[in-house]
Amino acid sequence: MRLLDNREELLVRVRQQMHEKRYKHTLGVAASARELAERFGADPDKAELAGLLHDYCKCWPVEKMFEILVRHDMPTELLEGEKELWHAFAAAIVIQTDLGVTDADILQAVRYHTTGRAGMSLLEKVVCVADYIEPNRDYPGVDFIRAKAMYDLDAALALALGGTIQFLIEKQKTVFPLTLTAYNDLVSRKGREGGF
C-alpha cells in the first residue's frame, strides 16, 4: 500500500507497464478524470488514481492476461469475447493483488472503464468518459463528446458508448453485453428524465 502513497514511485511503476504512447494516454486520462470528478462531484483523488491505473495491463501479452482472468474465475463470455476488453478486468485484479488497491470504487472504475455496465457509479462514469475524451484522443466525434462532458456526464457517456457500439457493428464485431446494458441504462434513465 505504501506505493500508492508515493506518487513518483507509482508513476514509475505504471510507466514500466507500457510503451510511451500508452503512458501519455494514461496521464491524459488521469488528468481528465480529476477534472471531471471536480466538475461533477466525484472524489478527485480516487478519479486520478483510477485514471493512472486503468490501463495497467493494457500492454501485457494476452496470454498473461488470460491466465490471470482464468485464475480469478472470470465469466466465459469475457474469456471468449474480444481480447481488447481483457486488460480492464485483469488490471482490476492486478492492482489489488500487486499494488494493494483495496478501494472498491477504484477497482470497479478500472474494471468497467472499457465495457461500462448498467448502474455505473459516478466514479465509474468519470473514468470511462475520461478515457474517451482525454486530450490525446483523436477520432470522429470526440470534440462533440468533450463539449457534452462539460455539462452532462451521462449524455457524454451515452454518446461515447453509442459510438463504440456503432463502430463494432460496422466492423462486424461482437458487442460485449455489458456495453449494451450500460448504453440502454443511460438512455432509459435519461428518457425518464426528459432526454439528453
Score class of each variant (00 low, 15 high):
Thr102Gln: 15
Met120Asn: 00
Arg111Glu: 08
Asp131His: 12
Tyr132Ala: 05
Lys148Leu: 12
Lys148Arg: 15
Asn136Ser: 07
Ile106His: 01
Gln108Asn: 13
Lys148Met: 14
Ala118Ser: 11
Gly141Val: 04
Ile145Gly: 02
Asp143Ala: 05
Ala147Tyr: 15
Arg117Asn: 03
His113Phe: 08
Ile106Met: 02
Val142Arg: 10
Lys148Phe: 13
Ala147Trp: 13
Thr114Met: 06
Asp152Tyr: 01
Ala118Leu: 04
Glu124Asn: 04
Leu123Tyr: 13
Leu122Ala: 08
Arg111Ile: 05
Ala118Met: 04
Asp138Arg: 08
Val101His: 09
Val110Trp: 03
Gly141Asp: 05
Tyr112Thr: 06
Pro135Leu: 07
Asn136Phe: 04
Asp143Leu: 06
Arg137Phe: 01
Pro140Ile: 12
Val142Gly: 06
Arg146Ala: 06
Pro140Trp: 12
Pro140Phe: 12
Arg137Val: 11
His113Gln: 14
Gln108Pro: 02
Gly119Cys: 03
Val126Ser: 05
Arg137Ala: 12
Lys125Ile: 05
Gly116Gln: 11
Ala147Gln: 15
Met150Pro: 00
Val142Ser: 11
Ala130Phe: 02
Ser121Thr: 15
Gly119Leu: 00
Ile133Glu: 00
Arg146Met: 09
Phe144Val: 15
Glu134Ala: 05
Ala109His: 10
His113Cys: 06
Asp152Thr: 01
Gly119Val: 02
Asp105Lys: 00
Lys125Asp: 00
Glu134Gly: 04
Cys128Tyr: 08
Val126Gly: 00
Tyr112Ser: 08
Leu123Glu: 05
Ile133Thr: 07
Arg117Ser: 05
Ile106Val: 11
Ala118Glu: 08
Met120Val: 04
Tyr132His: 01
Tyr112Lys: 08
Ala149Lys: 03
Leu123Met: 11
Phe144Ala: 14
Asn136Asp: 02
Pro135Val: 07
Thr115Tyr: 09
Ala118Asp: 03
Tyr112Asp: 01
Ala130Arg: 06
Gly119Glu: 00
Val129Ser: 10
Glu134Tyr: 14
Val126Leu: 09
His113Met: 12
Ile106Lys: 01
Tyr132Cys: 00
Val101Asn: 09
Val127Phe: 09
Val127Gly: 08
Thr114Val: 06
Gln108Glu: 13
Val101Met: 12
Tyr151Ser: 11
Met150Gly: 02
Ala118Ile: 04
Val142Glu: 06
Asp103Ile: 03
Pro140Ser: 09
Ile133Gly: 08
Gly141His: 07
Ile145Ala: 02
Gln108Thr: 15
Gln108Leu: 14
Asp152Val: 04
Ala109Val: 13
Cys128Pro: 00
Asp152Met: 01
Asp131Val: 13
Tyr139Ala: 06
Asp103Val: 09
Thr102Leu: 14
Tyr139Ser: 07
Gln108His: 14
Ala149Tyr: 08
Thr115Arg: 15
Asp131Gln: 10
Thr115Gly: 07
His113Gly: 02
Glu134Pro: 06
Ala130Ser: 05
Arg111Pro: 00
Ser121Glu: 08
Ala147Gly: 13
Asp143Gly: 01
Glu134His: 10
His113Ala: 07
Ile106Ser: 00
Met150Leu: 04
Asp143Met: 05
Gln108Asp: 14
Thr114Asn: 10
Leu107Ser: 09
Val129Phe: 10
Val142Thr: 08
Asp131Asn: 14
Tyr151Trp: 11
Gly141Gln: 08
Val101Ala: 10
Ser121Gly: 14
Tyr112Gln: 02
Asp103Thr: 02
Thr102Lys: 15
Ala147Val: 15
Arg117His: 01
Ile133Trp: 12
Ala104Asp: 10
Leu123Cys: 11
Arg146Thr: 06
Ala130Pro: 00
Val127Ala: 14
